[in-house]
């Protein structure tokens, strides 16, 4: 006669177990391949940054200190070419709807878009922009590290400050796979913050949702570039390596840096199947094939 009650208990337990099944599912063994270590794919730069990909899996990047513009590492040939000249000092790149490339042009303190013909539109000026993400609906979010701000540019090119003051040094930025949550890494703290993305693009419910591991003796994780994997895990470059968080904000593991010393500042999945993880490590870019793919919304 109490079968209902017992079933209900079992049902609740099943939910608890399911949560834990997700937890157990997040070990590094689930995405690293032993025979695929980091390897150098681009060298001879000064300070690589701005990694992003397109639907074909080509990798785009900049040399933020000394480059001429936007470079492409071709997914098919492995060749590097300069695809957009006369744009030095870009720190963040990201494709949006319709194959438009968006860039945080840090050196010129502006955010721009570049269409397929190379025509440039200036979206915002007078901002110390760092990194950006573009939603499927065409909202652009970018970080402004020194002012503690996250900005939003709507699809009709209205610009507003979406958050200010929560993150000490907002730096890397990424989005959940359902595009309902925005995530920003703190270069000057230990959290990756999240917000709910409202229908009009506004950010609400700021929360220090993920806690990054720190080097011994440090209080800042140096959270930098971010990307999202297709199952919803967030990848964040830090002092300690690429830290990975599951969608519930739990640290799943840390992929060691390709170089023992030196910074990694940008991370992206690219390659024709979007299953090769690239990191920008100062004068070089390294990559390694993973068992998982990146999320690519466009």
């Amino acid at each position: 006669m109490h079968i209902h009650t017992i079933f209900r208990v079992l049902f609740i337990l099943a939910i608890l177990s399911k949560n834990q099944a997700i937890a157990q599912d997040t070990s590094l063994h689930d995405y690293l391949i032993d025979s695929e270590p980091w390897k150098e794919v681009v060298g001879g730069q000064t300070f690589t940054d701005g990694l992003c990909t397109d639907s074909a899996g080509n990798l785009f990047f900049t040399d933020v200190k000394n480059g001429k513009g936007v470079y492409k590492l071709d997914a098919a040939t492995g060749q590097v070419s300069l695809v957009h000249d006369n744009l030095p000092g870009i720190s963040g790149l990201q494709f949006g709807p319709g194959g438009i490339l968006y860039a945080t042009h840090n050196k010129e303190q502006r955010v721009i878009s570049i269409d397929k013909d190379g025509k440039i539109d200036v979206l915002v000026t007078g901002v110390k922009c760092n990194d950006l993400v573009v939603t499927k609906k065409g909202f652009v979010y970018f970080t402004e590290t020194p002012t503690k701000r996250i900005h939003c540019i709507t699809p009709d090119q209205q610009h507003r400050i979406a958050d200010e003051g929560h993150v000490t040094k907002p730096n890397g930025i990424s989005i959940s796979i359902d595009e309902q949550t925005l995530a920003v890494s703190d270069y000057g703290g230990k959290h990756v913050w999240t917000w709910r993305i409202e229908a009009d693009g506004a950010l609400t419910a700021a929360s220090p949702y993920m806690t990054m591991e720190l080097l011994t003796g440090k209080v800042e994780a140096a959270g930098d570039g971010m990307t999202t994997e297709e199952k919803g895990r967030y990848f964040v470059t830090t002092d300690l390596g690429v830290q990975i968080f599951d969608p519930m904000g739990r640290l799943s593991g840390i992929i060691a840096k390709p170089v023992a010393t030196g910074k990694i500042v940008s991370v992206e999945f690219a390659g024709k199947d979007h299953d090769i993880l690239f990191v920008a490590a100062e004068d070089k870019i390294f990559s390694r094939k993973l068992k998982v793919k990146g999320y690519f919304g466009h």
Partner: peptide
């Protein structure tokens, strides 16, 4: 949990936090 602005999407759990 944080309800998604788009009702078609699932809420995000705040349980671990």
């Amino acid at each position: 949990s944080f309800p998604a602005a788009d009702a078609k999407e699932k809420p995000r759990s705040n349980r671990s936090f």
